[in-house]
């Protein structure tokens, strides 16, 4: 952290009601360490609308605007416009939504706002299902996952949507993936995004969910790290939608990651092999974009 010159200060309060070991909470904590006091956070319906506290409490030391599920990007655009009207160009506006509010319900608002080149950072903290309402599948839920809406043998048979590629296709100035298990990398990316004012920046943060994934709370960081180490969730950045930079090369096999989580415990060795092939395919695709 010394290299990044980030003040040693947290803008997250104790006493919030996140589950023990909550990855989304750690994501917010790390992000706000970088973003600092001059930040407005816009939160739609998601885990974080609960973690942020019951009225009249707040779990953050910065202002939060709670908004409807589909409207994070639109509300963030409005907050930005209001700040600009006041002549405040310093404050960073951050849209902070889960995967449901980003990949599914908030997608059209997000796509529209980034196409309009709205000046905000949009963060999707991805715990790979609608966790707050009790683990319903989203389009971010990976192939092979059992959720309450993909139960028993009807576990999810479709792939996870690649949201980073969708955003990169909008040719926005900065798109990146980050993981709570790689805090230095994650905080560097937030700093970079914060300094790239003038347009939309999108950061996709992998935020483990011990409760929803069936992992012991103490392994929350470890499982997030394994996702990167197995190339399930590669760490990379895309500038202007075309310039790719890879931040980490994983080399571990996917079964180590899958077998630690009860959401995957029904998978046969064949299923695991299928997932390994998907991971390999996506990885090769990414490497091609990164180039030599």
């Amino acid at each position: 952290m010394m290299q990044l010159n980030i003040p040693d200060r947290d803008y997250l309060n104790s006493g919030h009601v996140g589950c023990p070991g909550c990855g989304a909470t750690i994501a917010m904590k790390l992000a706000l360490r970088v973003l600092g006091e001059k930040t407005v956070v816009v939160i739609p319906a998601c885990c974080w609308s609960i973690i942020a506290g019951n009225y009249p409490q707040s779990a953050l030391k910065v202002p939060i605007l709670h908004t409807a599920f589909a409207t994070t990007a639109a509300a963030a655009s409005g907050v930005r416009a209001a700040l600009d009207m006041k002549g405040d160009t310093e404050t960073t506006v951050v849209g902070w939504a889960g995967d449901g509010g980003t990949f599914d319900i908030g997608f059209q608002a997000l796509s529209g706002a980034v196409e309009r080149q709205e000046d905000f950072i949009y963060v999707c903290y991805d715990n790979e299902a609608y966790m707050n309402t009790g683990v319903q599948r989203s389009s971010s839920t990976p192939y092979g996952t059992r959720t309450t809406t993909t139960p028993g043998t009807e576990w999810k048979k479709t792939r996870k949507k690649n949201i980073v590629e969708a955003l990169a296709a909008h040719r926005i100035s900065y798109t990146a993936t980050a993981s709570i298990a790689f805090p230095d990398d994650m905080m560097r990316k937030f700093k970079k995004a914060m300094e790239m004012k003038g347009g939309p920046r999108f950061i996709h943060v992998f935020a483990s969910c011990p409760t929803g994934w069936g992992v012991a709370s103490e392994l929350s960081i470890k499982i997030a790290r394994l996702a990167v180490q197995t190339n399930m969730f590669p760490l990379y950045e895309v500038e202007d939608g075309v310039k790719y930079t890879l931040n980490y090369k994983g080399n571990r096999s996917i079964d180590e990651y899958l077998k630690m989580q009860s959401r995957f415990k029904h998978l046969t060795e064949e299923d695991i092999q299928t997932i390994q092939e998907m991971v390999n395919e996506d990885w090769q695709l990414l490497l091609r974009k990164i180039g030599p």
Partner: peptide
């Protein structure tokens, strides 16, 4: 517009432990 003014710190979540 309802605005939260107090911290969650009044919740002693240590009791969960």
């Amino acid at each position: 517009i309802s605005r939260s003014k107090i911290s969650t710190e009044i919740n002693k979540t240590g009791s969960w432990c």
